[in-house]
């Protein structure tokens, strides 16, 4: 059922969807968004390639097994919690740094962002594992 229109659109949408997923991830601290929905959008972008082409193409794009996203994400989440122990605070105490951006403004990055990044990877990995395996059956 592969159509030329779908393949063209899928190729064009891929970078936009990945950027959107990163936008949702970073926005999630104060506004709707976050690691979970960001991970879903990124997974959707790759699943779209699977639908338009085939699972082999989708797998090639990942440059690695989606398996490894699980320990990576869980590890980031756990480390973001344990980091607080370094300065003698209880597990998961958050800490922020303000990164000044060129042209005024600043980006507040903190441990919750790292935790959210972990969620992003875990969601991405889980969804891809399930869908790619189903797609190959």
């Amino acid at each position: 059922m592969s159509s030329l229109i779908l393949r063209t659109v899928a190729r064009l949408l891929l970078p936009i969807l990945v950027l959107l997923s990163l936008f949702l991830l970073l926005r999630g601290h104060n506004l709707p968004g976050g690691g979970f929905v960001g991970g879903l959008v990124c997974a959707a972008a790759i699943i779209l390639q699977m639908v338009a082409y085939d699972t082999a193409t989708a797998r090639r794009m990942l440059r690695g097994s989606p398996w490894l996203l699980l320990p990576l994400g869980l590890g980031l989440a756990l480390l973001s919690g344990l980091a607080a122990l370094l300065w003698g605070q209880p597990f998961m105490t958050s800490r922020f740094v303000s990164v000044p951006l060129p042209g005024g403004g600043a980006l507040d990055l903190g441990l919750p962002t790292v935790f959210d990044l972990g969620v992003y990877f875990v969601v991405l990995g889980t969804v891809l594992l399930v869908v790619l395996n189903l797609g190959e059956e």
Binding site: W67, L68, P71, L74, G75, L78, G81, L82, F91
Partner: peptide, 24 residues
Amino acid sequence: MTLHLVLPVALPLAGAILCLAFYR
């Protein structure tokens, strides 16, 4: 407050993460 009280949760989780990383 007892900072190390999180260990019974964090230790098995860390183990599980490492096991996943070495799943082969």
